[in-house]
Measured scan of single mutants.
Amino acid sequence: MSRVPSPPPPAEMSSGPVAESWCYTQIKVVKFSYMWTINNFSFCREEMGEVIKSSTFSSGANDKLKWCLRVNPKGLDEESKDYLSLYLLLVSCPKSEVRAKFKFSILNAKGEETKAMESQRAYRFVQGKDWGFKKFIRRDFLLDEANGLLPDDKLTLFCEVSVVQDSVNISGQNTMNMVKVPECRLADELGGLWENSRFTDCCLCVAGQEFQAHKAILAARSPVFSAMFEHEMEESKKNRVEINDVEPEVFKEMMCFIYTGKAPNLDKMADDLLAAADKYALERLKVMCEDALCSNLSVENAAEILILADLHSADQLKTQAVDFINYHASDVLETSGWKSMVVSHPHLVAEAYRSLASAQCPFLGPPRKRLKQS
């Protein structure tokens, strides 16, 4: 649940008159999402009104509101027999009622949201009550392989729920002597030191190019640089560091992050930047690179990204790559990247197969709970 924001200063709310007192009302909304995959969808019983329910879910471990999704594969009634019906059901509720908006969509073979439908307002739910769409999607369109909505005969539904909580009022009075504290510009100011090479005390040599930097900042941000300058190493004695395995453009992006906490060109060089972040123990930059690479996972590059993640101990990226390969196994196994990995990294192939087997055979063990970014 997000923290209630402070109200904007009255002088910034309007260029008009300023009242002596004010009130700011925040209506709290808890948002969460749920993904439900139905394997072997074409084998569902086709009687009209037949119901399939998901397991229950909530916004978190401490949330007492429990929900589930309900599907009628062949419609709810005679009117909707040519459609799939989809509903959000409130299973248990400690209150007399709650209000919530919802959005349903289908994830296609690429994991993209399609055929989205959402409620136009927050509906009133009581325990045992459901709301949804009797005519969510035509069955003939859903079952047509050309539309790519049932890869490997799996129907994957994605649901986003927004639950309306209580409202909170914050009130106060205006004073004539309003003090406005300026925003912190530390990142910009440190970035200026790097860009202008002011007050530098060490030189970093990268592929024949020299960059002036500040030992204190490098040591504070990177345990690797800290070790170089702290001990009686040649880098500490000469205040000069030779860097041979990072390209200059990648190095500059890494230094921008060290000084400012930002990497504006990360998406263009996420793979190389991940390697640099791993070498210099820049954990936050490493996770930022993992996130960017996750966003660009595809059938063509899944094997290469899995190898990269394994090489640099990028655990979150590795998990996402394995899950992606499992979901698109029939396509990924035909790529040149996968065939190369079979020869060069057989242990990763074995890991992917083990994960695929456990996903398809849940009876082999208890269900695993899916539970950071600093």
Rank of each mutant, 00 (worst) to 15 (best):
T37F: 05
N39K: 04
V332N: 00
S167A: 04
E210N: 13
S236A: 13
D152E: 06
V343E: 07
N326H: 08
E112T: 09
V343R: 11
L285P: 01
G128Y: 09
K31A: 05
E183C: 07
M178H: 03
V29E: 10
R99A: 14
A314M: 13
N296D: 03
A11T: 10
K28S: 13
R139M: 10
V322N: 11
D201V: 01
A309V: 05
E230C: 14
A281W: 11
N301L: 08
G192A: 08
L76H: 09
N40C: 11
L364E: 12
A281N: 05
C289D: 00
S355C: 05
R185S: 04
F324D: 00
G128L: 14
V322D: 12
A100F: 00
L186W: 05
S119T: 12
K66D: 06
D201I: 01
K134H: 12
N196R: 02
L204I: 13
P151R: 07
V98F: 14
F363Q: 13
C294V: 11
R3E: 08
P73H: 07
I106F: 08
K101W: 15
P73C: 09
G261N: 03
E300Y: 05
I307W: 10
V299Y: 11
S59M: 01
D82S: 11
G208W: 14
V29I: 04
Q209E: 13
G111R: 09
D144G: 07
L143Q: 12
E20P: 12
L348H: 07
H231N: 15
S14T: 10
G128Q: 14
D267H: 03
K286E: 02
G49C: 04
N72W: 11
D323T: 08
D63N: 06
F136G: 01
S119A: 12
N296L: 14
L88T: 07
A281T: 03
C23F: 03
P367G: 14
E97A: 15
E230S: 11
S167W: 11
L157V: 15
G16C: 05
E145F: 04
R354H: 05
S55P: 01
E20V: 02
M341E: 00
L317M: 12
M178S: 02
P5N: 14
Q320K: 08
K31H: 11
S85P: 09
L190M: 07
K339G: 12
L266T: 04
C23N: 06
L282Q: 08
C159E: 00
L274S: 02
A309S: 03
E12K: 09
V161C: 05
M13Y: 04
S92Q: 04
P151N: 02
P248M: 07
S58P: 08
K135A: 10
P346G: 11
T25S: 01
C361M: 12
Y34W: 02
A357N: 06
K268R: 02
K339P: 13
D271H: 01
L274R: 00
E334T: 01
L193M: 05
F257L: 06
I106P: 13
C68Y: 11
K268E: 01
A302W: 15
V4M: 10
E113G: 08
N108W: 11
E50T: 02
Y259H: 01
P223Q: 12
C289V: 12
W194R: 06
D166V: 03
S374I: 11
M288I: 07
S59C: 11
A329L: 06
A213D: 00
K238A: 09
L333C: 13
P182A: 08
S55L: 07
H345G: 01
L65S: 13
K318I: 08
H347W: 06
D188Q: 07
S355E: 08
L142W: 12
E12T: 10
D166A: 02
A61P: 13
S313T: 14
P362I: 15
F32K: 09
A359P: 08
A359K: 01
S358Q: 03
L297K: 01
N147D: 05
N301F: 03
P367K: 15
A220T: 06
N326S: 06
C256L: 10
A19N: 13
D63C: 10
K134N: 13
K110L: 12
F363L: 14
A213T: 10
C93Q: 12
L190S: 11
S171T: 02
T335M: 05
S119Y: 00
P17E: 14
S336F: 05
V342R: 09
E79T: 11
L157R: 00
V126D: 11
E189H: 05
I106N: 09
E304P: 10
